[in-house]
Every structure is written in structure tokens, then in C-alpha cells.
Design a protein around this nucleic acid. Structure first.
Length: 119
DNA sequence: ATAATGACTGGGG
DNA sequence: ACCCCAGCCATTA
């Protein structure tokens, strides 16, 4: 939560749930932002998923690099340095690219993986 | 309270 | 296939 300070709206809870889902993505697989939002039963919150990941501490154990755009592109949006790191991390764990995008058909985590969980 | 922003998305040109 | 843009909604200004 937010020890020592007031909670910031519903996002504290939202963030934690996003992190929990991302932690469950196996190595070598990826999910789209919208896909993560849907797993939380909140389609339309793709941008907020990005916000939750942006709030991660540097020493996090959350594999944030496994979340990409639905197109397979790395979500750079100004942070080019982070995007380069993200691609390096993904390639090091076996995720395949074609040009500047992940081969989603092959490396995207199937939605059914999350169906039996009480997210 | 209103306006701009952003680790997004799907559809149109 | 690529680029552009309206729609999206919590967070910031």
C-alpha cells in the first residue's frame, strides 16, 4: 500500500494487481497492455497498466519487460533508453523479433492461461 | 474545476 | 504494411 502517506485513489490497489499478473508471465513470453487490463477484468485500462509499470522501483522483481504493445512494438514513447534495455532483456530470454517488433503469434501468452485465476 | 499528458488501441486512409 | 487520429481514463499541472 502506501505506508506513511495517504493512498492515491484506487491506483494503489490497481498497481499491485497489475504487478501480480506481470509476475505470473513466464520467461520467454509476453502480454499486451490491453491484455493485462482484460485479465484484471478492466478492459480499456491499457494506459493505466503502463502507468503501474512506470511506478516500479528499479530493484523490482517484476518482469516488466514482458509487457509490450498489442502490435508487438516496445512501448518507447520518449524513453528510448528503457526501450533498448527492454528489447535486450527479452531477447536474452528467448523472445523472437522481426524488425522492431515481437513475433506476437509465437510469444504472446495465451489468454486461457489466466482464466482459472481469481484476479 | 478545466486542460494536458501518456510504457495504449483499433480503425480508417 | 505504415501512418494518423479519435477515443480512452487515471494522473498531473
Amino acid at each position: 500500500m502506501n505506508p506513511g502517506s495517504r493512498t492515491r485513489s484506487v491506483s494503489d490497489s490497481f498497481r499491485e494487481r497489475v504487478w501480480q499478473i506481470v509476475r505470473a508471465i513466464p520467461e520467454g513470453k509476453v502480454m499486451g497492455y490491453g491484455h493485462v487490463a482484460s485479465a484484471l477484468a478492466q478492459p480499456g485500462m491499457a494506459r493505466q497498466v503502463g502507468w503501474a509499470l512506470a511506478a516500479l522501483p528499479v530493484d523490482t522483481d517484476v518482469p516488466w519487460q514482458r509487457v509490450v504493445r498489442s502490435s508487438g512494438h516496445i512501448a518507447a514513447q520518449g524513453a528510448v533508453d528503457r526501450a533498448i534495455l527492454q528489447r535486450a532483456l527479452l531477447e536474452s530470454e528467448g523472445v523472437g523479433f522481426v524488425g522492431d517488433r515481437v513475433i506476437m503469434e509465437t510469444f504472446r501468452l495465451g489468454p486461457e492461461h489466466f482464466l482459472d485465476r481469481a484476479w
